[in-house]
């Protein structure tokens, strides 16, 4: 039996009366690459934001490595407006901030690259080491944490070297070309020492050649760092090639899931992407 890394239970996100995500239940097992696909506005990024604590889901829970990390049920105004299904009202409320979730071992990248633009490439990676260092503001100021600092620097340099970014180490992150910025963002996420990596459209804006390289890169880091990957992607060739399983969302609802071959044949998926004729 494979070890379950991520499980979401009836995750629902409602913005007022708009249901962005409806009773999403997905499972990600250790060592898998799972893709989350769907047309624009299907709720893919919303799902990411619920898992990483950026949004509080209206209802539902997220379990990571057997531990419930996010859990909520409709409260206050949402009690009346809530449109989803509920098991019971007795769900616990656990609302961690995103930094706590990162600390547990879930790292993510963003759809529109979010680097620290005024910091250098090296500093961008070093920032990710901040949370794991044993230090407080006093020891850090007086440099009593120099051993931790040295270790963080060495680890960051090693990581940059592996990712082929070492030669850009002292350049500002904003001055890198687009492809390298993507790579830096993934490197930075890796520096947080995650177990699960969430990639939000890693191939956005890339040409077929770059997409090809990215596919190899993702498989490489997955094996090297013993990762599990959940990714959102629109490039179907990338998704079909590297993912073990695919979940398909449409208008916030899960409409299909299975292996790439199964999903490709699924009529509902084809309808969602190509549309259904009015008279059909």
């Amino acid at each position: 039996m494979t070890e379950n890394i991520l499980h979401t239970e009836k995750l629902t996100m409602q913005f007022g009366g708009v249901v962005a995500l409806y009773n999403l239940t997905i499972d990600v097992n250790k060592g898998e690459i799972v893709a989350l696909i769907g047309p624009n506005g299907a709720g893919k990024t919303t799902a990411f934001n619920c898992i990483t604590g950026v949004y509080e889901p209206t209802y539902g829970s997220v379990t990571f490595c057997g531990e419930t990390i996010v859990s909520n049920h409709p409260q206050g105004k949402m009690k009346k407006m809530y449109l989803g299904e509920k098991d019971s009202e007795k769900l616990k409320v656990i609302r961690p901030t995103p930094d706590k979730i990162t600390k547990l071992g879930i790292a993510r990248t963003f759809q529109n690259i979010r680097l620290f633009n005024s910091l250098t490439v090296f500093e961008n990676v070093l920032v990710a080491k901040h949370m794991r260092a044993k230090q407080n503001v006093l020891t850090a100021t007086l440099r009593l944490n120099w051993r931790e600092e040295k270790r963080a620097r060495e680890e960051s340099l090693a990581l940059l070297e592996e990712q082929g970014l070492l030669q850009y180490k002292d350049e500002l992150a904003s001055s890198l070309p687009y492809g390298l910025q993507r790579r830096l963002e993934i490197s930075r996420a890796l520096a947080t020492e995650p177990k699960l990596l969430l990639l939000d459209e890693p191939a956005a804006g890339m040409n077929p050649q770059e997409t090809q390289e990215l596919a190899e890169f993702i498989v490489k880091i997955k094996n090297k760092y013993d990762l599990t990957i959940l990714m959102i992607e629109h490039h179907m060739d990338l998704v079909m090639k590297i993912s073990n399983r695919i979940y398909v969302l449409d208008f916030g609802k899960l409409i299909a899931h299975g292996t790439p071959a199964e999903v490709q044949k699924n009529q509902r998926v084809i309808d969602a992407y190509l549309g259904v004729a009015e008279d059909a």
């Binding site: 990483t52 950026v54 901030t97 995103p98 930094d99 990162t102 600390k103 790292a107 993510r108 963003f110 979010r114 680097l115 620290f116 920032v127 990710a128 901040h130 949370m131 794991r132 930075r188 996420a189 947080t192």
Partner: peptide, 8 residues
């Protein structure tokens, strides 16, 4: 947002 995602 990115800082928070980096565990800060």
């Amino acid at each position: 947002i990115a800082a928070e995602a980096m565990g800060i």
